[in-house]
Structures are given as structure tokens and as C-alpha cells.
Amino acid sequence: MSDMNLTLKVWRQKSKDQKGCFETYKTLASEHMSFLEMLDVVNEKLERDGKDPVAFDHDCREGICGACSMVINGSPHGPEKATTTCQLHMRKFKDGDTIVIEPWRAKAFPVLKDLIVDRGAFDRIIQSGGYTSAATGGVPDANSILIPKERADEAMDAAQCIGCGACVAACPNASAMLFVGAKVSHLANLPQGQVEAKTRVQNMVTQMDKEGFGNCTNHGECESSCPKEISIKFISKMNREYLGALSHVQKSAAAE
């Protein structure tokens, strides 16, 4: 087992309103550790020394919950493609490396403490999307709603989004359009999502704008940072859905 000496530059910020700064820590790490386990070791030492441990978000540690969120050496979730921070292993680093660790940087994601940001903006966008109407009553027959394979696949590709916010973190404009595109598209591709499809896309885009995210300028950085490899084709899909919904929503507003 080969241990490596690492120098970490970690963003430390006591609370939302206080100014933060980078602090440097030296640590030993095994190549078998995950990135978060490496930070756990750093935190154990900090606690032993009576210091405040580095606060970071984490939950499932198996790459599906979307909680872990840090920019590692300039890339959200680190340098590995299609990998969340918790699934990033220290064997991807070398002895003597300096690793810069920062929180997601976006106005809509204020830093709460150290590496933890408030991603409530994403929750509010999801909430603004509302519900899908569902028939109550007896259980429908299996396969009573036919969905072409390609549509089902595309809906599932969009539904892979774990809402981690790496797209916003990676975007030079801190835009949330990949996230919103994925969330709009996954329901817009399925018959179950059709009833409210037009108001849903309008409401989600309005909420996205209200949260203070930037605007997509088609850099494609979101797609290459997304741990679930969600394609920017969903941004195009969202734009299409949004434009298609304009006349409908104006009509319904007039009727109100």
C-alpha cells in the first residue's frame, strides 16, 4: 500500500455572512481511499487538535444521492469523467500533489459553511414544476400506456439527474439550464407528464430566472462535468418545450 503526501488548499468559511479564505493542510492518504475518506482523515486530525473540522456535504457515498459537492482542482467533482466526489479515488492523484478544494460558486448557491452550499434553489425549481395528474382507482394493466423505446430511453437519460449542481458550478455563467432541461425533459418525454407539460416548463423557467442563475451560452462545460453525463440536448429540448408552451400559457392567462 503506497501512501501519498498531499497538500490541500481548502476553502474555509464560518458562516454565510462571514468572509472565507483558503487554509492549507498537509495529510497522508492511501490510494485506496475515496476523496471523502481522505477528507475524513483530515477532519479526524483537526478534531484531535481541537479545531473545527472541514464541513462538506455527503450522504450515500455511492454516487447516487447528489449530496457531495466540491470543486476539486478547478473541476466540479474532480478530474474524473462521470464521477461524483464520493466515487473519486485517491489513486487518481500523485504523491506530492497540491489539491485546491472549493465550494460550488454561484449567487444562487450561497455558501453556508466551508464547502457546503445551499442548493434550495433547485428544490424551489422542482416545486414550481408541480405535480403530474394521475388516474386514481383500480390498478391499471401493465403496459396499458405504450411508450416508444426511444422516448422511454430519453426520459430515463434525463431522469438520471441527481440534482448535485455540478452543471451550475462548471458553467462559466453559473447557469442552471442543464438541470432544468433535464427535469423538464424527463416528464415532457412521457405521456404521464403531458397534462401539465406546458405550464410546468413555463413555471420552472420562471423560477430558474428568479433564483439568479446565469444564462446558457452553449459552452458545454455542464455536460462534461455532469457525473451522470446528461447531454446538452436537453437544454435544446427545454427551449423547444418553452417556446411551444408560449401561446398556450398566454391563452390560459387570458382566460383567467
Binding site: S75, P79, E102, S175, G214
Partner: peptide
């Protein structure tokens, strides 16, 4: 749009890698 985009990231990254974006996109 540019003003809104700049406002959307008030604190810049100390280190930022670009993966796929092009010279054209970054200099619009």
C-alpha cells in the same frame, strides 16, 4: 445577458479548468 451572467457568480474560483468550451465561445 452578460451582466446577468457576471452577477450569477459573484465570487470567482481560485482555480478553474475548462473541459470542452471553445475559444469562440469564451470570447463572444
Amino acid at each position: 445577458l452578460t451582466i446577468k451572467n457576471r452577477q450569477a457568480r459573484p465570487v470567482a474560483y481560485a482555480k478553474k479548468e475548462h473541459q470542452t468550451t471553445s475559444v469562440g465561445a469564451r470570447t463572444m
